[in-house]
Structures are given as structure tokens and as C-alpha cells.
Design a binder for these strands. Structure first.
Lengths: 256, 256
DNA sequence: AACTTAGTTTCGTATTGCGAAACAGAAACG
DNA sequence: CGTTTCTGTTTCGCAATACGAAACTAAGTT
């Protein structure tokens, strides 16, 4: 039914866009041509089209092509329409104020979570690495696991199979058995850990946000460097995390 | 040199994307076909390609096509690379806390400003209409005018000529003379007003953020409903606004 | 002045995307 | 329960469209 190849010019244009998105200060035509493997005149034509449509602009001072913020405008509309975002902002900020640590809101899309909101720590010193729009697999983050824990086992297995299991750090879970062990615990306690499974030196606690169907479509987390996240601190933070998750879930129509 | 028509399939695909971005809960194929004026089989082919590339997904439950967050991922990278954003976040939040009103950060792109960060009022009652990624003309916003005020007159004229002058409210400036009068005042005081020029019932004060070249590439503002923004309140808020703008400008390398 | 190298424009060609039409499935109707 | 009328998917022959080689321009380099 599917797997007919994508329209060629679209595929090519988007590969250029992806390349450009990785280079903040733009790229010259020839570089785009060589790394994409396309003929320079093809690249030129596609860029000209994208420029005319307003997605790309050529920096006249140095001849480099770069993305404009028009994509941001489009995707901003999409993100804005996610109702959990509106409901979560206030509780998240309160949570950050109570904990003084970075807090995140993610939603699930397929086998990944996407960061859609962040309130930064006031301990400005150490900055968490996270970017809005960034994706991570479900199985290696506190938020992801807390969402998995709201799903039936067979779906978890499906997601696991579709995921590219990769040990981001030495603590990353790479066996399905381990994952299920953890999920059992998460279901009991209502929150999930990430003990440096995604990034060394960072520990997170996460809790799912449920909508009226009871399924976890989103999750929130508190992240901090190892030094500020010992067991005592966790005991202190968990109730606050859960309260915030509860609050948002209730606002989304989840009961009990 | 330009105005050769854009690659057809690109132009069409992006028009579909724009349509989809305006409908949070997706659109059925036929609706897309009729409003875009494209043949349904063309729409189908383009959507299939966009799906395969991961930008669009078909909601199997109701058959509607919707945008994924992949665009958000791309544009997130672009936005993230704007250094003024990182530098502005803390001062903006402080400003919001001091004023208890909604504060915004915008950057200029061409003849428009783009909202790239917002810290919402805690007076949750009345919510400002503003969305990240949203664009407004320079001439009808406090932030826009404060940026114009940092530019040489001839450039202001150029921008004016390229702009589609439109009276958003009865207070919108629609004559170049009026604009220059205001710019003169803004240059004297260092901040700009928006007296319901963009939206009835909303008053803003804005100040430009300058980089090391002295040009205003960004600006910040405090917005509030008319009722909370009388002259006394403005006198109180302006110094705080200016302090924040100053702070960010300094961090960007602007001196004096 | 000769030689690179990046970027733009032209243009003939075949490939690619096009859309009419057939098909499949679901919902609405009588 | 068959008929009609939707929407969405697939096929396929045709020609318009996008392709890329090559010519050309403009800057830099040697």
C-alpha cells in the first residue's frame, strides 16, 4: 500500500532544510551540494524556490543560505494547539520555584518523546542540555518510562521492538526484562527515575500526565546534576513532582 | 535574476503544510484538496511523501492528516541558535516577576518582528493574545517601533514602503510623518509605546535590545490590558523595562 | 594575466510528477 | 437491503516539469 517513493523534489528540498537547520550560520551552496550529493544547479533551483516561499534566505553579506523563522511560525501554531501545554505551564513554573531545578514537559510522538516546554533552573551555574523540539527514545528517560508505565505490556513490547536500542551511557537499559522490572516499580510508585541513563551526571525524576482516557500522552520531570540529586533530595522532590502531574492530569479530565 | 517560478511540487507541498498548521486537529484529504484547489490525487501523493518524510501523519482513527512535531524539531534548532534568546531569558523572567505582567522577546526579520519568547503574566485572568512564532509589522508594535528607532531614517523609509500599511485599530499609525514623530520621541526616551495600535484594549511598552554594532535586532516589551496600564503605572514600569533591555544589550556586547 | 573556485543562468531532454479515471470502502439514504 | 454518494487510494498514459550538463559571470589566487 505504501512505500512508493516520495516526490523527489520534496525529499531533496527537505534534506537541504535539515542540513541547514544544523548550521546556525548558514551554508554556502557548494557545501550543500557536496554533502547532499545533489548537483549544484539542482541545489540552486531548490534553494531559489525555498527562498521565494520564504523558508530560506540568502545572507547577501557572505553568500550563505540559512533558514528563516518561517518554519518556526508554522510549527509554533502546531505546538500552541497542544492543550496540555497551556494547562501545564503554571504548575510547571510553580514546580520549578519549589524545587529550584529545571523542569520539562514532554509529549509522546510514536516511539519518542519531544520536549515542548522547559522552565530553567535558577541555579544558573550548571545548565541542562535540552532543547525544545528535541527528541529522545522512550526507554532511556524518566519521562519516557513514566509514559510507558501507563501502557499495556504488549504495546511496550511493540515500541521496544521498533526502537533502536542504544546504550547512551553505561546505565542505559538495554534489555527488555530490565525495562519491565522498572515499569512494575514505576506503576507502584507513580514516578520514574533516570539514573544517568540518558546523560552522565544528570539524574531526573519524571511522572506521566494522563488525559481522560487514562493514557499517558505527556510527562513532566525535574532534572538536576548528580550532586544535587541524592536520595534525600529525591524523597523531598517526589511529592512535589507528583502533585504537579496530578494537577495537570486533573485539568485534562483524568479522574482517579 | 529572480521570479522564476518555484518548483511546483514544493510550492504545493508547503501550501498544504500551511493549511495543516492552521488546523490543530488535522484535515481530511478532500478538504485540503478543495481549499488548496489541487486535484485530490495530487494532494494524496504529496501527503504520502510528506508522511514518508515524517512531517505529516495520518490519524488512523478519523482519517485526518495532521502535522507532526518534526518541523518543530527543525525550527527549534534554528531558534536555539539565536544567542539573544539565551541571554534574555533570565532578565525577562525577573522583569515579569517585578511587573507581574506578560513580557515578550522579539527579533526582527525583514519588515516584521517575530515573537520568540514569552513569560506570561501571573494575573492569569486576562490572557494576552500572542503566540511564539507569530509575526507583526514593525510599525504597529511597541517592540517594532523601538527597533525602527535604532535604524537610520532612510532604512525606516524603505521598510515603510515595503510594508503593507493597514489600520489594525483606529490608533494604528498609517502615515509616515506620524511614525517619524514617534521615532524621534522614542530616540529621546529610549522606549516605545503601543497605545492599542495593534490590538484594542492592550497597551505595551517596548525597548530595543542592541548588539555590539548598536543596531536593534531584538526588543522586549511589557504588555497589559488598558485597565492595568495607566500613566502612573507606565512611569513605574519603564525603568524596569529599560534596566532589563540594558542588561541584555550589555551581555550582547553593546556598550553605551 | 592565467587559473581556480563559487554561484547563476540557459536549455534540450527524459524523467518525473501530473490528474483523469477506475477502484475500494464507508456512510447516508430510501 | 440494495442504492447512492461520499472520501480516500491506486493505476497508468501523457506531457509538462524538473533535471543536470554546460556555458557563463564574478571573485579570489597564484
Amino acid at each position: 500500500m505504501e512505500n512508493q517513493p516520495a516526490v523527489q523534489s520534496l525529499e531533496r528540498a527537505f534534506s537541504l532544510i535539515e542540513l541547514l537547520s544544523r548550521n546556525a550560520d548558514g551554508m554556502p551552496l557548494m557545501e550543500l551540494a557536496s554533502v547532499s550529493g545533489l548537483h549544484k544547479s539542482t541545489v540552486h533551483r531548490l534553494l531559489a524556490s525555498l527562498s521565494q516561499l520564504g523558508y530560506v534566505k540568502k545572507d547577501e553579506s557572505n553568500g550563505r543560505y540559512r533558514l528563516t523563522l518561517k518554519l518556526f511560525e508554522l510549527s509554533g501554531r502546531v505546538v500552541d494547539s497542544i492543550d496540555v501545554l497551556g494547562l501545564a505551564k503554571a504548575p510547571l513554573e510553580q514546580l520549578r520555584n519549589a524545587t529550584q531545578e529545571a523542569v520539562h514537559l514532554v509529549i509522546r510522538e510514536g516511539i519518542e518523546i519531544v520536549y515542548i516546554h522547559k522552565v530553567e533552573s535558577r541555579n544558573g551555574s550548571i545548565r541542562m542540555f535540552s532543547r525544545l523540539g528535541m527528541r529522545r527514545p522512550l526507554y532511556c528517560t524518566a519521562v519516557g518510562k513514566s509514559i510507558l508505565a501507563t501502557m499495556p505490556d504488549d504495546e511496550v513490547v511493540q515500541i521496544w521492538n521498533r526502537s533502536d536500542i542504544h546504550a547512551y551511557t553505561e546505565h542505559t537499559i538495554t534489555e527488555l526484562g530490565r525495562l519491565f522490572q522498572e515499569l512494575a516499580q514505576i506503576r507502584r510508585c507513580g514516578y520514574a527515575f533516570d539514573n544517568e541513563e540518558n546523560e552522565l551526571g544528570v539524574r531526573c525524576i519524571g511522572a506521566a500526565v494522563r488525559d481522560y482516557t487514562g493514557r499517558g500522552k505527556a510527562a513532566i520531570s525535574v532534572s538536576a546534576p548528580l550532586a544535587r540529586m541524592n536520595d534525600d533530595r529525591v524523597r523531598l522532590l517526589v511529592p512535589q513532582l507528583l502533585a504537579a502531574a496530578q494537577q495537570i492530569s486533573t485539568d485534562l479530565g483524568f479522574s482517579r
